[in-house]
Structures are given as structure tokens and as C-alpha cells.
Amino acid sequence: MVEKDKRMKLLEVKGLTKKFAGLVANDSLDLEVNQGEIVGLIGPNGSGKTTFFNCICGVYPVTKGSVRFEGKEITNFPAHKICQGGIARTFQLVNILMSMTVLENVMVGAFCRTTNTNRAREIAEGILEFAGLPEKKDILGGSLTIADKKRLEVARALATKPRLLLLDEAMAGLNPTEQKEAVELIRRIQREGITLLVVEHVMQVIMPLCERVVVLDAGKKIAADVPERIANDEKVIKAYLGERYYAKRATLRSE
């Protein structure tokens, strides 16, 4: 733990609150992501995970609180500035450029760091190689399978050369084989020195992947710990599986 504390704090969220009219989607959340980590963000439907992402990325203005990236204040920056600053993201519902080719999709991302078209193409081809899509580069984005679309979205985000990558349910809708491939891709991204904050529904996937897991429920942070302890946390199980399951589990254990 001592060694981990020495790592630079990459993302620092303090007391982030987001209200939609009367609904409190995020209730004074605190989160720190250190350089080189993979942090998981989990929680049941409607617990505010995507809202949290959107607040960091400047899609929504935050009601209260602050977001700092690499020590710099980035609260309420417009979305494109956040990306230029080094935070890339993917979307829960795939949001690729349907009538552009796979290569062109990634080139749009690459143009974030260059104005030269040939250079952008080189970067994009390198990224597609890395993401395992090189032979599909001339296919229209809209005609990819869901797994490839998700992969393309990650590739496109990587092309903007981020230092922090936010993945919003990158595994949703994938079959177990595809999930395994996606996990492998995420590991490779981490090895490239990119820090990841991963929103995920599929527990089996996120637990072995992350160093730390943060759990949200109804907009509040209810737990933040290493995956092994999160899996046995009483509050987490209640939030995810309901009070009844927790009671049942307790009775099963006692028998």
C-alpha cells in the first residue's frame, strides 16, 4: 500500500454532486485514480455511473464539487477540452460514426494530436493493429458486429492519445469469448501506461481486472476497496441482489 500511495494522483474528484431537477444522480462523490491503475466503478442500474462519467467529461455541468486531472482543475470544462487535455471515453450505447469507415473513425480521433492527414492515417493504422481490427479498416462502421463496434470505439478513443481512459460498459452485450478478448485488450492498454476507469455491470469480468473497485448505489458511494473485499461486502450484496437475497445467503451460511 505504501508503494501505491507514492503513485501520482491522476484524477481527483471531490464532493461531486449532480442534480437533475429534483433527482440527485450523484451525491457528493469522492474518487481518486492513481497513475497506471485500473479502477472499476460498479453499481446497479440507475446508480449514477454514467452520469458520473458525463460529469467528468464535461457533457453535463456539475452542480457542486470539483474534478482535478493531473493536479489541474477541469471542473465544467467543455467536452472537447477534456479530450484534448488527455481524458478519452467510450459510450454505453455505441456511438461510432456509422457511415465512415473503421479507419476514418480512428483517424478522426488521431486528428486530435495532428493536423497532417498522412500522419493521422499512420497513427490510426497503428492503433487498429493494436486493437485487433486491421483487416476491417475499410468496412463502414455501421456494418460491424457489436463487439467490433465496441472495440472500434476503444480504438478511436486511444487515437486521441489519452492518459486516462474511461470505459462505459465496454463488455455489455458481448458473449464470454468476446468478453475475454476485451479484458485482454484492457490489460494491453494498461501496459501501454494508460490509466483506466471502467464502468461495468458484469461482476465476473471486473473483479479480476481491477485493482480497486468503487461501488455506487442511488448516487452515493457505498464502498471502495480491493475486489476481494468488495465481493463480500454486505452493503454491496444488498444493493446488487436485494435484501431478500442477502437474508437468504445468511440463512444458507448458518445452516
Binding site: M100, G109, C112, T115, T117, A120, T160
Partner: peptide, 26 residues
Amino acid sequence: ERSKLGFYLRAIKESEEAARSLGIDV
């Protein structure tokens, strides 16, 4: 059509939200 501007304009046409997330000042 072949420059950064052209790619950005087409990206805006496809999805403004995605364009913003890729650093494009829409």
C-alpha cells in the same frame, strides 16, 4: 475532404456527442 477539417465536419454530421468526445469543438 482530405484534411482534418473534412474529417471533423463529417464526424459532426454523424454524431455531435461522439465528435465532442474526440476533442472536436463542434
